[in-house]
Measured scan of single mutants.
Amino acid sequence: LRLEVKLGQGCFGEVWMGTWNGTTRVAIKTLKPGTMSPEAFLQEAQVMKKLRHEKLVQLYAVVSEEPIYIVTEYMSKGSLLDFLKGETGKYLRLPQLVDMAAQIASGMAYVERMNYVHRDLRAANILVGENLVCKVADFGLARLIEDNEYTARQGAKFPIKWTAPEAALYGRFTIKSDVWSFGILLTELTTKGRVPYPGMVNREVLDQVERGYRMPCPPECPESLHDLMCQCWRKEPEERPTFEYLQAFL
């Protein structure tokens, strides 16, 4: 395994491009020591290896001592969030954005069929390849993070704006909380990567959403798509659509 080009840095580690087995181009995620327990990670990795779908980033291998390494397929255009905010983002029109959403829903419909939960679905965790191919990455890892700023769910590192209220408040993460996050991801797509709930801080978002506030229809977004977002944001988790439905609708 060779680490060649550093692609990015996040709160919990770095991402590199490299070569595996001398020939395969891969992405390598390294986790800061202390982010998660190697034992817990190894268990999760076994499950992650079983998830194989064309719209999920394929896991190739893991190094399960500290520092933990995760070796996955390489996606040339990086994260969907950076892609939307970058040069190419300007030229993306609604049909392409909807197609990308459908690809993500397709990957998540598979996660749904496998009775698995992602827990951290957002544009930053979707990767883009050639020809606007989108794949879901980092599934299941969020559960293992041991950082206090994260586990408190009120901490600075927790993605509260993407998280369903029952998950943020009571830790009830299910495929239905993933559906909520998918609704937020749809706003990221239609606004080219704007942060959700602009002008609001995490605490406010939690309070307002509890009181029934939902983001309005983004500019140039059809009402039918906003309606779909609002279905994803129904207060009762069981009233939210399935990913199978979302995939078919898109």
Rank of each mutant, 00 (worst) to 15 (best):
N115S: 14
M229V: 09
V15W: 02
V128M: 04
T19N: 08
W20N: 14
L225Y: 08
G8D: 06
E44T: 01
K6C: 07
E223M: 12
A152W: 04
A156V: 04
V98S: 11
K157G: 03
K77L: 11
F41M: 04
A137P: 01
F83P: 05
P218V: 10
Q231M: 11
C221L: 11
G140V: 02
E149D: 06
Q247K: 12
I126D: 02
V62L: 12
D178P: 00
K176T: 14
G155D: 08
N202V: 03
M114N: 09
G86N: 08
T242N: 15
L169W: 14
F139Y: 02
P237S: 12
L246Y: 08
K77M: 10
R119I: 06
L31T: 09
V26S: 12
R172G: 11
G171L: 14
A101Q: 06
E66T: 15
A123V: 09
F83L: 09
G78R: 11
W20D: 14
E87Q: 11
F249Q: 04
G13F: 03
G86A: 09
M108E: 07
V195N: 13
F83T: 11
T187D: 08
M215L: 11
K29H: 02
L246T: 06
G212C: 06
A167V: 04
K32L: 07
D82V: 07
C217T: 13
T242C: 10
P222D: 03
I175F: 07
E112G: 15
K50N: 11
T19Q: 13
T30N: 08
M215C: 07
R93Y: 10
K135L: 10
M17W: 13
M17N: 10
T23M: 13
P95C: 07
K235G: 13
W16E: 15
Q43H: 12
A164P: 15
V136S: 03
E149K: 05
L80S: 11
C232A: 08
T30S: 07
C232I: 08
N115Y: 12
L169K: 05
K55V: 07
C230P: 03
T191H: 14
G10P: 00
P165A: 11
L81G: 11
E65H: 11
Q58G: 09
R119N: 04
L186E: 03
G18N: 03
M200Y: 09
E166F: 00
N202K: 07
R122Y: 02
S64A: 04
L31K: 14
S181A: 05
F243K: 03
S79G: 04
L31G: 08
L56F: 04
V136A: 04
E239W: 15
L42G: 04
Y110R: 05
P218I: 11
G13L: 02
S37W: 06
M215K: 05
Y91A: 08
D227R: 14
T30E: 06
V47S: 05
Q154T: 08
K176V: 09
L84S: 11
T35Y: 11
L94S: 06
T191I: 05
L225P: 03
Q231G: 11
E239R: 14
